[in-house]
Amino acid sequence: MKNSLKVHAALFVVALIYAANYSISKDVMPRYVGPFGLVLLRIVGAAVFFGVLSRLIAPQDHIRGRSDQLRAVACGILGIGLNQLLFFSGLNLTSPINASLIQTIAPVVTVLASAVLLGERLTLPRLAGIGLAAVGAASIILSRGPVAAGGQDGLLGNVYILLNATAFGIYLVLVMPLMRKYHPFTVLARIFLVGAFLAVPAGWQQVQQPEYSSFPGSIWAAIAYMVICLTILAYLLNNWALKYASPALLGAYIYLQPALAVGIAVALGKDTLTLTKALQALLIFGGVFLVSRKPRPVAPLEPVQD
């Protein structure tokens, strides 16, 4: 298989894994395991896996220096701990389609964080894209659908997903220098370890409550999927593909994930696609498209000829 096909295959599998999770997670929580309990299982499992893998593959590689250590801690808090706690708390309350659509604003947050932290230029199309995506996300967050009517706080769930996307967008900006400087497994082992310090106290009570002996095989399979596929396999494939994929290609797969999530949720009867949701999706997709476009380089002024 050619390398370009491998990249497409890896990105597609990652998108499919994340898309299926929106519906699979709803089967597990809150009936069998609470959202924080699931986060604990995921993060601790990944911390152990990447910790062992980093010692086997890059035993001499260590994160050094005060600034890199602090950056790794910030990445673990934002990208692993808060990111996962907010995501599963939000998904527990809102619908799969709402969650998948709101999460697509992460690239918008990344651009804003890059402008603030790295001094990148905000062009007029990008500002328009930020506004367009914000309108789409706000319309989803403030809408009251079947989930909210069914007794759950859908508004709060949508806000949690928005905060999750914000934390993840900032994390992407912070983690990039570490990924370029150290082996990816070294970075993943450290940030998952930091995330575990948040996940264990938050999820310890919920992980002890269930009667695991009463779980049907389908629920065990769903939990295994979230720990192995969603956490470990997706991170491995994503980090490999990031070495070869162009920004335009990554942008295309940003749109594919919610499309797959919608298809899976509707096919499994977990959610319904309405005209309103389709229009909200178009607003967000349009905004992300404008934000994801690279600004044209400013041409240097030619000297005036006498």
Rank of each mutant, 00 (worst) to 15 (best):
M1K: 02
K2Q: 13
L5P: 04
L11V: 06
A15M: 05
D27Y: 07
D27Q: 12
L40C: 14
A47W: 01
A47T: 03
G51E: 12
L53E: 09
L53H: 02
R55I: 09
P59M: 07
H62F: 14
R66F: 09
S67G: 01
D68S: 10
Q69D: 00
Q69P: 00
Q69R: 10
R71Q: 10
L78S: 06
S95D: 13
P96G: 12
P96Q: 10
N98E: 15
A99N: 08
I102T: 07
I105N: 06
L112F: 14
A113W: 05
S114P: 10
A115C: 14
G119R: 08
G119M: 07
T123G: 12
G131R: 02
L132Y: 03
L132P: 04
G136I: 01
S139K: 03
I140K: 03
G150I: 12
G150W: 12
L155W: 12
L163Q: 02
G169E: 02
G169V: 04
I170R: 03
L172D: 00
V173I: 15
L178C: 13
Y182S: 00
A189N: 08
L198Y: 01
A202V: 11
Q205A: 15
Q208V: 05
S214T: 10
P216H: 04
I219R: 10
A221K: 05
C229I: 06
C229E: 05
T231W: 04
Y235N: 10
Y235I: 01
L236G: 02
N238L: 08
N239K: 04
K243W: 03
A245M: 08
G251L: 03
V262H: 07
G263D: 11
T272A: 15
L273D: 14
L273T: 09
T276K: 09
T276D: 14
A281K: 09
L283R: 06
F289N: 01
K294W: 00
E302S: 14
V304Q: 14
Q305S: 15
Q305T: 09
